[in-house]
Design a binder for these strands. Sequence first.
DNA 1: TCTATTATATTACAAATGTAATCTTAAACT
DNA 2: AGTTTAAGATTACATTTGTAATATAATAGA
Lengths: 133, 133
Amino acid sequence: MKELPRISEAELEIMKVLWGKAPQTANEIIESLDLKMDWKPKTIRTLINRLVQKEAVSYHQGKGRMYEYYPLVSQDSFLQVETKSLLKRFYGVSFKPLIVNFLKEEKLSSEDINELKRILDEKSEENQRKDSK
Amino acid sequence: MKELPRISEAELEIMKVLWGKAPQTANEIIESLDLKMDWKPKTIRTLINRLVQKEAVSYHQGKGRMYEYYPLVSQDSFLQVETKSLLKRFYGVSFKPLIVNFLKEEKLSSEDINELKRILDEKSEENQRKDSK
DNA sequence: TCTATTATATTACAAATGTAATCTTAAACT
DNA sequence: AGTTTAAGATTACATTTGTAATATAATAGA
């Protein structure tokens, strides 16, 4: 397994754009971020290049001179890495308040809530199985 | 409200020590981290000083020449800030997989699970109230 | 009192990050 | 064909972070 590259805050914005749709040219990425990020186009190109160097993103020549970029790191694996890294950072800090905070902040649909409860039930069962052994 | 200072990964280790017990002298902090962190004492002192500059930590003179350091930022407010910042980073990324990841990673006691379910129930009710309006 | 310790303060330096500008080169227009 | 445009490559520069070492000053010991 290859280590996932470390993706900085600013670089993450590029990744999110590419996770939403890929491949995209630099100009398309720039346009996507235009309203949101108040970055100069050159800045965005720098970030894209850094992601290429880090092998989080790659590209191929599209039609004409322009490159089309696509993500090499999936959103899913990134989420997993970040989750673990956050847990590691907070190791030794009680975990529950963290989750509680999350749940409080976030707007969740009824379906989401049900799924989360289902997961908790599974955890619950796991606990019991272990207790009774 | 004062903005909370940004606390780096390494600095966080110092904070965790001080959240566990305060005040502590630099030497006590160094000793606490001795096994855990493979850092030179000078490194730890640098980190402490940076936290003082950032006003995340302060100190007063203890008995003798040594300072006693204590946190100015509570673990609670830090957790809240980090939670929000993570959510902001992931804004636009679906939220549920994040929580699901957390729940899967973590070992939770039965009491924890019950509390989380209670919170979910509350959210559920909130949703209903809104729907019926 | 002079000297050795040692806490604290100051300085160091490379890598990562945020934020671009300039340079080069190839394509498009005249 | 010569010139303008504009991708992409290279370079820039300040700040933050990781990881200390050196300098200073005050205390403790001889």
